[in-house]
Design a protein around this nucleic acid. Structure first.
Lengths: 245, 245
DNA sequence: TACCGTAGAATTATCGACAGTCCTCGCCGG
DNA sequence: CCGGCGAGGACTGTCGATAATTCTACGGTA
């Protein structure tokens, strides 16, 4: 561990982008909401310039969509969007798992099992927030441990979108312990060095999550993840939903 | 195909980002070079505001790295960077291929084979630029045809980086026809619906390319892809190389 | 000769202000 | 009653100017 913080702080747009990412993931800025520049700038205590730069970052990530002369809006996760997100997540995490298997992986497995333990604890306490948090930390650890800059960066966006959906349609998981077991199985397969099993478990884990998120009461995510009946937590709202970026 | 162009033009930062991406891929702005705001703004005919927003997009993509109060620099592709890039590319393109196999794929295969034909033609004419162009169009078509927004967006960055390296150490391919054959084999395996074969060919294709890019004269890419002896095509240069984003 | 400190220049970071565009709402005519 | 029209307001897009920081070069000193 380094004894000193890096002398160069990260740039202001980067910091702001992080805050916005967090706010979007937590649902403080609901899906479909418009990001008013003046108001956000006031809230964050910065000028509109750096704020706009940060928002361009999130636009590039796909978390926001831009409509000229109208503004920037948080994406709304339709069923297709959720499907696409899980396609990308599967691609990234599978590649990460393979990378880990190629390199050393003892310590990674240990860290993952620690997080499984945390999940189990949260599941026993029926603390669904903590469970989701540990869940996401698990997947983040998996990808970060692979040591790939690009996979990590891609995954960061995908995790935000995941959290966004989990926040929106909170508590849709049927059995918390099933969730824990799936993660544990993946970690153990990793520890055994069984590449094929890891892939199989990972893919089915993603499929399960996708099923849970899209097959609820045959109206998809419209009720939970769409901004049309948004909760307006952030005090920002928008009338209609844009279509393209 | 749509009869009208979308009424809403894409935002200015998006346009500028595209131009910068192209310039970086083509090597007009060499690896390691600093992007001076004033000069670029003058060249592009815009103010520094929109330009900065565009550069933040590329920073988020990982094409630029930012150092506070110093400026933005084009990344230098070390051997590890190239390796990482191909890891990510493999992950994305493999997922795209699987998606295509799950959906219909006749027309996709046809388009890919067309591009293979173009490659063959370029190879016969020994036009290496056209060959590279068709090569990249092939991979772009593969991913775009999968219909995944996220995979496509991720891949866009990776293709820029690929072009960057190809531009830097131009003409490192031993036999152009081998290159064509590999692409043709992948397209044919796709057409046959043979998922396992597609994966195998795709992965080995990536490995081959990686070998060619990293194993040259045992000094890695330092001579071709590093900015230390940069060609300064863009007239922009920078002394030392930064380490982090 | 080598090192340290300092003044100058250049570049970035941030802010405030202006111009352009779109949406809203009320009014008028059919 | 309904549809078109226009003024007003709000927001984004863009630009120029100012403040802060860093790099460079030069001169002094041990």
């Amino acid at each position: 561990m380094p004894r000193f913080e890096p002398v160069v702080r990260e740039s202001t747009p980067s910091i702001i982008a992080g805050k916005l990412r967090k706010a979007i993931g937590l649902g403080h800025i609901p899906p479909g909401a418009q990001l008013g520049e003046a108001e956000l700038a006031r809230e964050l205590g910065v000028s509109r310039g750096p704020l706009r730069e940060a928002m361009q970052r999130l636009t590039q990530e796909g978390l926001l969509i831009s409509i000229r002369n109208r503004g920037l809006f948080v994406i709304t996760m339709t069923d297709d969007e959720v499907r696409d997100m899980y396609v990308a997540r599967t691609a990234v995490e599978r590649a990460a798992a393979e990378l880990i298997l190629q390199k050393g992986f003892e310590d990674v497995v240990a860290r993952l099992l620690d997080l499984v333990k945390a999940m189990k604890k949260a599941a026993d306490a029926e603390d669904l927030d903590a469970l989701s948090e540990a869940d996401m930390a698990y997947h983040e650890t998996l990808v970060v441990s692979a040591g790939s800059t690009r996979l990590t960066r891609m995954h960061q966006t995908l995790l935000t979108e995941t959290r966004m959906c989990l926040t929106a349609l909170e508590k849709k998981y049927p059995d918390p312990h099933t969730r824990v077991a799936e993660h544990q199985a993946i970690a153990e397969a990793l520890g055994a060095g069984n590449a094929e099993l890891v892939e199989e478990l990972l893919i089915s884990h993603m499929d399960d999550a996708l099923q849970r998120l899209t097959d609820n009461e045959n109206e998809g995510l419209a009720s939970g993840c769409d901004g049309n009946r948004s909760s307006r937590i952030g005090g920002i709202e928008s009338g209609k939903q844009p279509a393209t970026a």
